[in-house]
Design a protein around this nucleic acid. Structure first.
Lengths: 297, 297
DNA sequence: CATTTAGTTCAAAAGGATTGAAGTAATGAA
DNA sequence: TTCATTACTTCAATCCTTTTGAACTAAATG
């Protein structure tokens, strides 16, 4: 792989084509016409291909020459982009940003934000993962992610920066035809314990798993995400607390019913963004800044 | 747009990464280690970016360096491909080949052939058009196409080379519930004239239009392609001759019925490939050679 | 602590790129 | 037709970038 094509030659060809003249190209490139001639001749010789038809006074690109100019421009653009990418990276823009989103949140607005980011910084890879409860902290401490959106509770240590997103409201919700709907409210803990509770299992792999508002002694059904928990509630498989913002439509449509319960634990939960304090990445900062002004629940 | 990146520097980076050593890269590139060092230093200086971590004995690519190597390889590949393309073009391979197919033929085997060609010569653009009867000749004489597949009749002048593809059989076919099916065969011309005939209109733009086997005095319905003619026949809109190979399935399924008619004109038609005798293109030759061994009808 | 391995530095040399003057060839105006 | 102009080419001289090789530094290895 030893191509006789050089970026300099491509630049020269590009200039000649755009200005439609060797002399004008020489002028543009701050060279003397003979230098342009030399470069073109060398390329033609090494390729053993005629790029210009010189039978007329004005040198005219041959079809092959034209193709090389066109393709060459793409190559020049690519090297230019590469330079730009490298410069940006050196200035603190990540090559890749890993975002971990708690399954309690609506992903849609975040995806919209990512799309916007990609338009501005198309060379930065964004990798999104979904975790549940402690799983987000786990991903952060294990270095599997750069930014957690929707971290719950306190930081495990001072290596992380927390930025609150607000409190999320939970309600005790069951399917419309669930037996508990017929009970007088507030519903006692002992009544609730007669039905299986749907529990989103913590996706922590290393840190001690957190439990989220379990009413002890109840039969449990574990599901891997809040989406699945909502489905389970809708099917009447069990009962439990759900984030209001995720089930508003179901409550309005009457498919889920919010019930008053005696125990008040876990009715609210503080959500945050979190990232490692050493991470000075500009893409990270961009997302933190933009997400702060967003309503995610 | 004056990128400090050069193809030579990218080659050097590539070699270093692959061989995992400056010395080995120098060896591979028939240079002295200091020359490699020089090239890398110059690039780093001009980009103002550290590409190698030299704190250890073995220089280690930084993440940005790695990205540049990876992207750089794509650029090297592109210039290499460009060289290859140019060489091939100079050797007589077209930059673009325009193929004009008569609508009477099955396009599928031709598309399969084009797909195969594209795998071998991915940089050559293939442009397919569809024409009807004289339209193919028209496209050729007007220079709108390079190769006609399925040209009918004689060449208009000696500027073109004809290569016969064989004879195509036509049958007089009508829809299964058409009144003509009830008539005793062979069916007389006067009976036929009572029903509209479906005529594929010639797509010639400059040459005198040819007519294909019209039974004179009949009401006509003109359609733009053989596909549409078959549809019209199936719907019972009219009658006429159809190429057997295109309606075999409908005949087998009984949706169309082939009838015996008295007039025997236009029962067969000689089809050919045709191209301009000055066209020495290798892609053209490739297609001519391959199509000769194919069964297109 | 000596030895080996890996890359860097630097002055000297090589050689490719640039220059400018002279030349050629097509175009177009007088 | 002639002559000036435009457009590119040729070529020897010059410049300056790249390469070289010897000497050097610094990390790993045992």
């Amino acid at each position: 792989m030893n191509s006789p094509i050089t970026l300099d030659a491509l630049k020269v060809l590009d200039a000649i084509e755009r200005r439609n003249s060797f002399a004008a190209a020489a002028d543009e490139l701050f060279r003397v016409p003979s230098a342009i001639s030399y470069t073109v001749n060398k390329l033609e010789e090494e390729l053993a291909i005629t790029l210009f038809d010189r039978s007329k006074r004005k040198a005219q690109l041959t079809p092959i020459g034209k193709m090389i100019v066109e393709q060459g421009r793409l190559i020049l653009k690519a090297t230019d982009d590469l330079t730009h990418m490298a410069k940006q990276s050196a200035e603190g823009w990540e090559l890749e940003l890993r975002i971990c989103i708690d399954s309690i949140l609506l992903f849609k607005p975040i995806y919209a934000l990512i799309a916007e980011f990609q338009q501005q910084y198309p060379w930065i890879n964004i990798r999104v993962t979904e975790e549940v409860f402690g799983g987000t902290w786990d991903a952060l401490t294990a270095g599997r992610t750069d930014l957690v959106i929707g971290a719950t509770g306190e930081a495990y240590n001072s290596d992380f920066i927390l930025r609150p997103l607000g409190e999320i409201d939970f309600v005790f919700a069951v399917a419309k035809n669930h037996p508990l709907v017929q009970e007088p409210q507030p519903i006692s803990s002992s009544k609730i314990k007669q039905y299986p509770s749907i529990v989103v299992s913590d996706s922590s792999r290393h840190l001690p798993a957190r439990s989220a508002g379990l009413l002890n002694g109840q039969p449990r059904i574990s599901v891997p995400s809040v989406d699945k928990k909502i489905e389970a509630h809708l099917l009447g498989l069990g009962v439990g607390f759900l984030p209001i913002h995720r089930i508003e439509e179901y409550l309005k449509a009457g498919e889920l019913v919010a019930l008053n319960v005696k125990k008040t634990e876990s009715r609210k939960s503080e959500l945050s963004m979190a990232w490692h304090k050493d991470n000075q990445g500009k893409a990270l900062a961009w997302f933190v800044k933009r997400i702060q002004n967003m309503k995610l629940f």
